[in-house]
Amino acid sequence: MTYSGNNSGFINYIYDRYRDLTIRDICLVFEGRITHQVMKALTGLMEEQMEEMKEKRTLRRVYHVMVESLQNINRHAETFENDGYPYPGRGVVLVTRDEGHYRITTGNIIETSNVEEISLFLGRLNNMDPAGLDELYMRQMRDGVISAKGGAGLGFIDVRRKTAHPLDYDFIQVDKDTSFFIFTATISRQESWKH
């Protein structure tokens, strides 16, 4: 069975995506609603790789950053109206690797009114030293409360202190009320990856 002629564009599109993914050494890509079950499935895929690889510490951190980033989307991503269909908790997730690093990238819609606060907070985390981050984490753990959304306000702080690289982040304004938030955490690989 072959695709009919009017689908050849679609086949090329899929092939181009496939080629892009393999060339860039993308371990995992997902777009859709990030429910708790999806978070567990995606992190489970990384865990399976952890079993086979020797970089235990690196992969534990990749796993942890994925859990925290996906739970952020699950809890905080806003509705993106598209043809009138709401998509709560929707986002895109990419895990890539090269010789020296793993990168976990997420993208999701947030309210434009939250852009400044997130941007200032992440900027502040990037400027802190390890001791300052530990202190902030412990203080937030002691004084913070679990929000109605289930977060403890600790995710970004812990991702920053476990990755030892500045956090990359940017915002693209979608319309007056909503913006697309893109976030990348970079983790150095401590041992070489073996096939």
């Binding site: 942890h64 859990v67 925290e68 739970q71 753990m141 679990i146 289930g150 403890a152 600790l154």
Partner: peptide, 12 residues
Amino acid sequence: IYFNTASSKMIL
């Protein structure tokens, strides 16, 4: 063997 940040608060 693993706990997320929200759990870290509950452990405290």
